[in-house]
C-alpha cells in the first residue's frame, strides 16, 4: 500500500465556448480582421488534485455537468489538461464507449485485433488472448462474419470481451458495465466483479450512489468543476446526499436498491415495474443521454407501474435512467418516504 498509481495535481481544463463555431477560413479571416474572435472561456474542471493508491476503488460523484467525464478523459489521456499535471503508473484501460474503433466491414476476428491494437496490445499478446475472448463472447460461430451483420447485442458482447480480457492495473468505468441479454449480463457482471476484486485500481463514475457505496472505498465529489470533498466513500456520499437533498428540499429515506429494482421493461411504451408502489406527487424520471443531459420524460404512474414515453427512446437500445420519487414536506410537516435510484435498462418492442 501507499503506492500511488494516479496522481492528479492542480488540473484544470478550459473550453472555448464560442457561440458560433468558426471552422472555415473565410469566417476566421473576417472575424480575425474585425477582431471579433472573442471566446467565452469556461473551466470544466479546475484546481482538481487527487491521488489514487494501488487497489483503491474511487467513486466520482456529482451532478450533471460537474466535470466528472472531463476528469475521466483527462486521466485516461484522451484530452490534455490546460493546466496542471497527471501522472500515471501502470497500464490504464478505459472502459468507455466500448464499441468505438470497430470496423463494420471487418469480421469479428479482425476486429479483435484492430480494437486490441488500439488499446496498445501487441499481436503476440492478442493471439494468446484470442481464444479466451472468443469463448467469453460466445460468438464462435460468427467470428468470421462481418461485424455489420452482427446484432447490437452481439457486437457489444464482443466489445466487452475484448475490453475485459486484459489485466489492467488501472480501470476507468463510466457506470457499471453489463451488456447483452440477461444471461450474458449476469456473466459480464461476474467478470466485472472478479476484475474489481483484484489488485486493480478503479475510477468509477456513477449516478447511483448505492453502486458507489458498494464498489468503492473512496470517493471524490465534484461540483461545478471543483472538488467539494474527498475521502472515504461513506463520508463523501453522506455529505453529498445531504447537500443534494437540502437543495431540493426533499427529505429522503435511504433507498434500498434491491427493493426498487426494475423488473422488465416490456412494451412499446416503456413500463417499468417496481416492487413497491410508487408515490404519486413529485416523482420524476430522467433520461441520461450520452452527454448526460437529463431530459424530462412524460410519465404516468399506476400503482407500482411507471409508464414512460419519450421520443428519444428507441427499441433495442440501452439507456441510463434515473428515477427520483420524492415528496416535499407535507402540510403537517410529515416527512414522507421517498427514494432515488438509477438503473440502466433496455427498451424492447414486444
Amino acid at each position: 500500500m501507499g503506492d500511488i498509481v494516479i496522481k492528479v495535481e492542480d488540473v484544470g481544463m478550459e473550453y472555448n465556448l464560442n457561440k458560433e463555431k468558426v471552422d472555415n477560413l473565410k469566417e476566421f479571416v473576417i472575424k480575425f480582421l474585425k477582431r471579433e474572435l472573442k471566446f467565452t472561456k469556461f473551466w470544466a474542471i479546475r484546481h482538481v488534485s487527487m491521488e489514487v493508491e494501488r487497489g483503491d476503488k474511487v467513486g466520482i460523484i456529482g451532478l450533471n455537468g460537474a466535470g466528472k467525464s472531463t476528469l475521466l478523459k483527462v486521466i485516461s489521456g484522451v484530452i490534455k489538461p490546460t493546466e496542471g499535471d497527471v501522472s500515471i503508473k501502470g497500464s490504464i484501460v478505459p472502459l468507455l464507449e466500448l464499441g468505438s474503433g470497430f470496423d463494420p466491414e471487418y469480421s469479428g476476428r479482425e476486429n479483435i485485433f484492430l480494437k486490441g491494437s488500439l488499446l496498445g496490445y501487441s499481436r503476440e499478446y492478442l493471439e494468446s488472448k484470442y481464444d479466451e475472448i472468443v469463448e467469453f463472447s460466445e460468438l464462435e460461430e460468427f467470428i468470421d462474419v462481418k461485424l455489420k451483420n452482427y446484432s447490437t447485442g452481439m457486437s457489444s458482447r464482443l466489445a466487452f470481451s475484448i475490453a475485459t480480457a486484459v489485466n489492467p492495473q488501472i480501470m476507468i468505468l463510466d457506470e457499471v458495465l453489463s451488456v447483452g441479454d440477461a444471461k450474458f449480463r449476469e456473466k459480464s457482471l461476474e467478470r466485472m466483479k472478479t476484475l474489481l476484486d483484484q489488485d486493480v485500481s478503479v475510477l468509477f463514475v456513477s449516478h447511483t450512489l448505492q453502486q458507489v457505496r458498494d464498489l468503492c472505498n473512496k470517493a471524490i465529489w465534484l461540483e461545478n468543476g471543483r472538488v467539494m470533498m474527498q475521502g472515504t466513500v461513506d463520508e463523501v456520499c453522506d455529505s453529498y446526499e445531504r447537500s443534494v437533498l437540502l437543495k431540493e428540499k426533499i427529505y429522503v429515506k435511504k433507498s434500498d436498491p434491491k427493493k426498487n429494482d426494475v423488473k422488465v421493461p416490456v412494451d412499446k411504451d416503456i413500463i417499468l415495474t417496481f416492487n413497491e408502489p410508487i408515490k404519486m406527487g413529485s416523482n420524476w424520471v430522467e433520461l441520461l443521454s450520452a452527454n448526460r443531459v437529463s431530459v424530462p420524460l412524460e410519465k404516468f404512474v399506476d400503482g407500482n407501474k411507471l409508464l414512460i414515453k419519450h421520443p428519444e427512446l428507441q427499441p433495442g437500445m440501452r439507456y441510463n435512467l434515473h428515477l427520483h420519487t420524492g415528496c416535499y414536506e407535507d402540510m403537517e410537516g410529515n416527512k414522507v418516504n421517498t427514494y432515488s435510484t438509477g438503473f440502466t435498462t433496455e427498451v424492447k418492442h414486444e
Partner: peptide
C-alpha cells in the same frame, strides 16, 4: 475522431 475521443492513441 470517434476513436480519438474514447481512448488515448
Amino acid at each position: 475522431s470517434a476513436i480519438l475521443r474514447s481512448v488515448y492513441v
